[in-house]
Simulated assay, not measured.
Amino acid sequence: GQGLVSDARIKAVGFTGSRSGGTALMKTAQARPEPIPVYAEMSSINPVFLLPEALKARGKALGEAFVGSLTMGAGQFCTNPGLVIAVKGEALDGFVEAAAEAVKGAGAQTMLTPGIHDAYTQGVNTLGGSDKAREVARGPQGDGPNQCQAGLFVAKASDFLNDEALQA
């Protein structure tokens, strides 16, 4: 990628992927004698807002659908919903319970590269080791290389906003 970005015939770059990969390409683009724009979609979180009435009406179905989107393509699609924002209460509890059951049934999937798998594993371990995030469910482990295990964690909004490790 850096070879392409540094080539004088290239006049703009589009990139979807990791923050470290995109940042490296941006630095290469800016270091050129003729800097070029880089349009990058990097490590998206894609928040999902669950409104109270929707949760009351169909919380279980939303929980199941959320996990389907979360685990689609081993979570590697740029549309992956990585953050849920909702008001604490009984309806949210129902959503979390349904999502937890769906996560427990979500089979392990193979990630694209060892690097992506390692970054995912480090992120899950960071969440699991945090005193501000609580693990709700894990899917079954895989038995092949680069197999990711689905995980569901919850945190209070104040903890999320005040802890950069939870936001990574």
Rank of each mutant, 00 (worst) to 15 (best):
V13K: 06
K104C: 07
K132M: 00
N146W: 05
A86V: 03
F160D: 05
V38Q: 12
R9L: 14
V124C: 09
G144M: 09
S130E: 10
Q147C: 12
A31T: 01
S18T: 12
D7F: 11
A150K: 01
T126P: 02
G1T: 15
F15M: 02
F66W: 14
P81S: 05
Q76N: 11
K56I: 03
D163E: 14
A65R: 11
L92Q: 06
R58G: 14
S69T: 00
K27C: 04
G1I: 13
G105I: 03
Q2A: 15
F66L: 11
S43T: 13
E135P: 00
F66Q: 03
M42L: 13
V87H: 09
H117F: 13
V5L: 09
Q167D: 06
G82C: 11
A61G: 06
N146E: 06
A8I: 06
V38I: 12
G144Y: 04
P35W: 08
A65H: 07
L51K: 13
G68I: 00
A106Y: 01
G1S: 14
D7C: 13
P145F: 06
G68F: 01
I36M: 08
T110C: 10
Q167H: 10
N146S: 10
F15T: 00
G75L: 02
Q30T: 11
M72T: 04
A119N: 02
F66A: 07
K56C: 08
R32D: 07
A165G: 12
R138A: 12
V136M: 11
A119Y: 00
Q141R: 12
G105E: 04
P47Y: 14
E53R: 15
T23P: 00
